[in-house]
Design a protein around this nucleic acid. Structure first.
Lengths: 331, 331
DNA sequence: TTGAAAGCGCTAACAA
DNA sequence: TTGTTAGCGCTTTCAA
C-alpha cells in the first residue's frame, strides 16, 4: 500500500480510502490510485486491516463438522457456504471425527484466526470452553446436536418424532418384531432416535425386546455384522429400523447377503445416496442438511448483525420418503 | 497479551516467549505467565502475530473445489484436511461452480486473507492472474485439471487412458455401437475422456458415430434425457460409456425407466456411491479423490518447506472396478 | 477533499 | 534470562 501511495503520489490514507471505497475522494485521484494499484498488483491485506479496524470483522467464519467426507456434513457445508458467499464471507472448515478434544482444538485454531463466528456440529458434551469467546463477541450456532453448558442458537431436527414415525410406519404394515440398529449411544441424536423407537412400540402396546436392539454402530461394516446377527436369531425381526445413513447401508448389505431384502422391511434415518435406485428402493426419514446449513448461517449472520433476542432452538422439518423397503408387509 | 503481562508482572516480550514456547524462559516466570493467561482466558491473535513475523506464515491454506456438496470434491477436501491437520494448518474452502469469475474472486478472497498456499480445482482456462501471487510466495497446486499460462504443480488422473480402458472393456464384450455421454466439452477432463473413447474405437477399427455422442451434460437429469434419446434411435447403442458420475446416475435412471438395465451394458467414469448395490452393479473407472487431495496437500507443503525443484504433473492411478454392468455381452 | 501521526496486537532486533 | 524499542500494513483520529 505504501508503494501504491508512492507511485501515485498521494498519502497512505488516500490509498486506503480508495481500496475501501470510502466516499470523498476526487475522481482524478481515485483513478490515479487504481492505476498504480493495478500496475503494482496490489493485494489488500485483510489481516492488517482488521487489526486496526474498530469493528474487527474478518469476514471469515469457522465450521466444525463431523466428517467433511460424509455427504451429510458436506451438504451442511454447502448450505453454509451459499449463505456466506452472498455476504462475501469465507469459510474455514474442519472435521471433528467424533473426538471432543479435536472439537476444542479446532475451535481454538479458528478463534486464533479471529473468525467472526462458528457453526458447530458438536462432538463433546461440554461447551463451556467457548463461554469467554462468546462473551468476547464470537457468535456460535450449533447444528445437529444442542449445546451443553452454553447458551447458543441451535438448528436441530426432531429426531424422536422422526424415529417414531419410521417405526409407526413399519407397525402399520403388520410388523411386531422390529430390530433397532443405532449409532454410538453417547450421541444425543442416537439417544433421541432410540427414544422414538421405544415410544412407537409402546404406543402400539409393545415393549422393547433387548434381543432386537444394537447400539454403538459407527461404521457400515459394524452395522452389516450386527444385522446379520439379529437375523440369525431363532425368532428374528421381520423389519429393521436403521437409525443413521451408514447403518442403513450396512443393513442393506446384510439383507442382500442373506437374499432377504424382499422379505425383511426396512426404514432408515437419513437420506442415502441413490436410495431410489436400489431394489427395493429404501424408505427413509430424510433430513435436509443443506437447509440446516443455510438456516445456521442465517442465524449466525443475524447475530453478527446485532440480533440480541434470546437464543433458541430451531427445528428443521424432516420428510418421510416412501420408496418400497418400508412397505413390505408382514404375514 | 498486554493484560497478561501486567497481571503476571513481566514484560510483553516474555509473555510472547511463553505463548510461542520459545526457549530461555525460567520455569517460574513461565508458570506465572501461564496462570495469568488462563485466568484472563487469553487467546493468541495469529493475525497480529503473523503481521510482524518474518516468515509470514498464517498456517492457513485455501482450497477451491468444483462443488463442496459433490462427493468427489468433498473427498478431495477430506484428503487435504488430513494432511493439513498433521501440521496444524487450517483450510479455507469454497466452491467454484464451473464459473471462472468465481474462481478468480475466491482465489482473491483467500489471498487477501493471506493464505500460505492454494489448492485449485480450476474452472477457468487462464491462471495468469495468479502469477504475481506466485512470485510473492503463494504456493499453488492444481488438481483434476492442469494450470494454463502458469507454472505450477498439478495432480491429475490420466483421463484419456481411463476412458480408453472403459471403452476397450465394452468392446471386449462384443459391443460395436457404444454411446458416449459427456460433460461440458470446455472442461479438459471431458476433452480427454472423449479422446480416450475415440482412440479405443479406432484401435478396434471403428470410427466415432456422431449419432451416438452427446456432450455438455452437466446434471443427472440432462444425462437421463440424453440417454433416453440415444436409446430411442432406430439403431440404438448396445452399450454406454458415461464420462462422469452424475452422468452415470442419469443413464442408470434412463435404463431403469426403459427396463433395459439388464440388456444395455454400461461403464462409468468416476465412482458412484452404492454402485455395488445396484442391479446390475455398476462397473466404473474409479478415481481416488481422497488420495488426490492428500498428494496435492503434500506437494503444497513440500513447496512451502522450500522445495524448488521444477514444477511438474503427478498422475494418480485410476482403478477399473468390474461389477456387472460393463460385462453384459452383446449378441 | 486530503494528509500526518498514532496505534491495533504482536514479534524482531538488540540491549541489559 | 529478561526487557526495551521499533515496526509489520493498515485504519483511526484529527488537523489542514
Amino acid at each position: 500500500m505504501k508503494d501504491v501511495a508512492a507511485l501515485s503520489g498521494v498519502s497512505l490514507k488516500t490509498v486506503s480510502r480508495v481500496v475501501n471505497r470510502e466516499p470523498g475522494v476526487s475522481a482524478e485521484l481515485m483513478s490515479k490510485v487504481q492505476r498504480a494499484a493495478d500496475q503494482l498488483d496490489y493485494r489488500h491485506n485483510l489481516a492488517a486491516s482488521n487489526l486496526r479496524r474498530t469493528d474487527r470483522k474478518t469476514a471469515t467464519i469457522g465450521l466444525l463438522l463431523e466428517d467433511l467426507g460424509n455427504p451429510f456434513s458436506a451438504a451442511v457445508l454447502r448450505g453454509v457456504e451459499e449463505v456466506a458467499r452472498a455476504r462475501d464471507v469465507e469459510v474455514l472448515a474442519g472435521s471433528v471425527d467424533a473426538d471432543p478434544r479435536r472439537e476444542r482444538e479446532l475451535a481454538g485454531a479458528f478463534i486464533a484466526r479471529r473468525v467472526d463466528g462458528l457453526v458447530v456440529m458438536p462432538s463433546g458434551n461440554d461447551h463451556s470452553y467457548l463461554l469467554n469467546d462468546v462473551r468476547a463477541g464470537v457468535q456460535v450456532v450449533f447444528v445437529d446436536r444442542p449445546p451443553v453448558h452454553l447458551e447458543a442458537d441451535a438448528v436441530l431436527v426432531d429426531n424422536t418424532a422422526g424415529a417414531r414415525d419410521a417405526v409407526t410406519h413399519l407397525l402399520s404394515f403388520g410388523h411386531r418384531r422390529i430390530g433397532f440398529l443405532g449409532d454410538r449411544i453417547t450421541l444425543p441424536t442416537a439417544v433421541d432416535r432410540f427414544a422414538g423407537y421405544r415410544r412407537a412400540l409402546e404406543a402400539a402396546g409393545l415393549s422393547v425386546d433387548p434381543d432386537l436392539v444394537v447400539h454403538d454402530l459407527s461404521t457400515d461394516d459394524a452395522s452389516r455384522e450386527a444385522a446379520l446377527a439379529l437375523l440369525a436369531q431363532a425368532d428374528p425381526p421381520t423389519a429393521l429400523f436403521t437409525a443413521q445413513n451408514l447403518i442403513t447401508v450396512g443393513a442393506v448389505r446384510a439383507l442382500r447377503q442373506l437374499d432377504r431384502h424382499h422379505q425383511v422391511a426396512m426404514v432408515g434415518f437419513d437420506e442415502v445416496p441413490l436410495a431410489d435406485l436400489l431394489e427395493p428402493a429404501i424408505t427413509v426419514i430424510a433430513q435436509h442438511p443443506s437447509a440446516i446449513g443455510q438456516l445456521a448461517a442465517e442465524l449466525l449472520f443475524s447475530r453478527l448483525d446485532g440480533d440480541t433476542s434470546p437464543r433458541r432452538r430451531h427445528l428443521v422439518p424432516y420428510t418421510v420418503i416412501v420408496r418400497g423397503s418400508g412397505e413390505i408387509r408382514h404375514g
